[in-house]
Design a protein around this nucleic acid. Structure first.
Length: 155
DNA sequence: CGTTTGACTACGC
DNA sequence: CGCGTAGCCAAAC
């Protein structure tokens, strides 16, 4: 069972940042709790070690808060766990709704109910967007870097 | 006011 | 590759 640490110092600000990022995820692509967290600098007073350990959990908290808050414009369904699976309780109304929405966007699931992050994984917002908001470069979800065939490696 | 219960993940069997 | 565990807090019951 997960035992969660305390919420970030300013949970409201943190949640806002998370939602802001999630709104950038395009339809047909998915991000992960960990990837979202990797784009946000550790909040004031939070050590790197703790942040690395609980950042993803806090993103989950932010997603959980979407339904409570007035955030109909946040595409929460596009955030899944590190294995490409839905983290909501299997069979729950919310989990079913998430899968239904993703499939409607063209996302496909394998036998075990997992999404292939190698193909559907998000690369993150544009570098300028990130810089403009004081955010960091996200960890890559795709194992194989976009190696454009036909494009030669210079020198 | 004591219990229960988490929209996570890396790691070890 | 699937399952259990640590992490050790906070809010909902």
């Amino acid at each position: 069972m997960p035992s969660l640490t305390n919420l970030p110092p300013d949970s409201q600000a943190f949640f806002q940042t998370v939602w802001h990022i999630v709104r950038q995820i395009p339809a047909g692509a998915v991000s992960t709790y960990g990837q979202i967290a990797s784009m946000i600098p550790p909040p004031e007073g939070v050590g790197d070690v703790d942040y690395k350990r609980f950042g993803a959990v806090w993103v989950g908290k932010a997603m959980n808060a979407v339904s409570a808050a007035d955030n109909a414009d946040v595409p929460w369904q596009r955030v899944v766990n590190s294995q490409g699976g839905i983290s909501l309780p299997a069979g729950s109304r919310a989990a079913t709704e998430q899968r239904r929405r993703l499939e409607a966007e063209g996302i496909t699931f394998d036998k075990r109910g997992r999404i292939n992050l190698d193909s559907a994984g998000w690369d993150g917002p544009d570098a300028d967007w990130l810089a403009a908001h004081g955010l960091l470069t996200p960890v890559p979800l795709k194992k194989t870097p976009p190696d454009t065939p036909g494009q030669l490696t210079l020198f």
